[in-house]
Computed example of a mutant assay.
Amino acid sequence: MTESPGAWSTGCQECFSDISSCCLTTWCPCVAFGRIAEIVDKGSSSCFGIGALFLLLHCTRCGWIFNFFYRHKMREQYNLKGSNCGDFWLSCFCEYCAICQEYRELQNRGFDMSIGWDENVSRRTPGVAMAPKVEEGMKR
């Protein structure tokens, strides 16, 4: 049995409920988007690489297409209410609001967006220790 979709934790028009993510999305959308993509891709893409690609697309007025893809992927991954049509319109005409909502959603799900996927996973997984540092050279 498939679980019915859940609601987003915040609405897309609630940008001012979190001023820091609103400012980041407004002034540095490529950084916010790169962080979202790294979490949604579960670390298989880099924040820097995706952010740079988004910046390139954003400068050509095509960043919304990239955002549409990741918004859809995120909605499917977290079983959030919505539709492809809604994702399309929101990404196309309210790109900053969509990115800000996605950013807040991941924060509200417990992700620290500034540390990336790997660090979030290591902080969430109890009992997982980092490998000890291996020093080079022989020791007696």
Rank of each mutant, 00 (worst) to 15 (best):
M1H: 12
M1A: 14
M1S: 14
E3C: 10
E3I: 13
S4R: 15
G6S: 13
G6F: 11
S9D: 07
G11A: 01
C12T: 11
C12D: 13
Q13F: 14
Q13K: 12
E14N: 14
E14H: 09
C15T: 06
F16D: 13
F16Y: 13
D18L: 10
D18E: 07
D18S: 08
I19A: 10
S20P: 08
C22G: 05
T26R: 11
W27D: 08
P29L: 07
P29K: 01
P29Y: 01
C30V: 06
A32V: 05
A32K: 03
A32D: 05
A37S: 10
A37M: 00
A37Q: 05
A37K: 02
I39H: 03
V40C: 05
K42R: 15
K42Q: 14
G43E: 04
G43T: 09
S44N: 09
S45W: 10
S46N: 01
S46G: 12
S46W: 03
S46P: 07
C47S: 11
F48M: 13
F48L: 13
F48S: 10
G49R: 12
I50T: 14
F54S: 04
L55N: 08
L56R: 12
C59I: 07
T60N: 11
R61D: 12
G63E: 02
G63R: 06
G63K: 05
W64P: 05
W64N: 03
F68K: 02
F68Q: 10
F68G: 00
H72Y: 05
H72V: 03
M74H: 03
M74Q: 07
R75C: 03
R75F: 04
R75G: 07
Y78D: 06
Y78V: 00
K81G: 02
G82L: 06
S83F: 00
C85R: 14
D87A: 05
F88P: 02
W89M: 11
W89N: 08
W89S: 05
C92D: 04
F93C: 12
E95Y: 10
E95V: 09
E95A: 12
Y96G: 09
A98W: 02
I99K: 06
C100R: 08
Q101Y: 02
Y103I: 03
Y103A: 05
R104N: 09
R104L: 00
N108E: 09
R109N: 08
R109T: 01
R109M: 06
M113S: 04
I115N: 00
I115V: 15
G116D: 04
W117R: 04
W117Q: 05
D118L: 13
E119W: 02
S122H: 12
S122G: 10
S122F: 04
R123Y: 01
R124S: 13
P126A: 04
P126G: 08
V128H: 15
V128S: 15
A129Y: 14
A129M: 13
A131L: 14
P132Y: 08
K133D: 13
K133A: 15
V134A: 13
E135G: 13
M138S: 14
R140S: 14
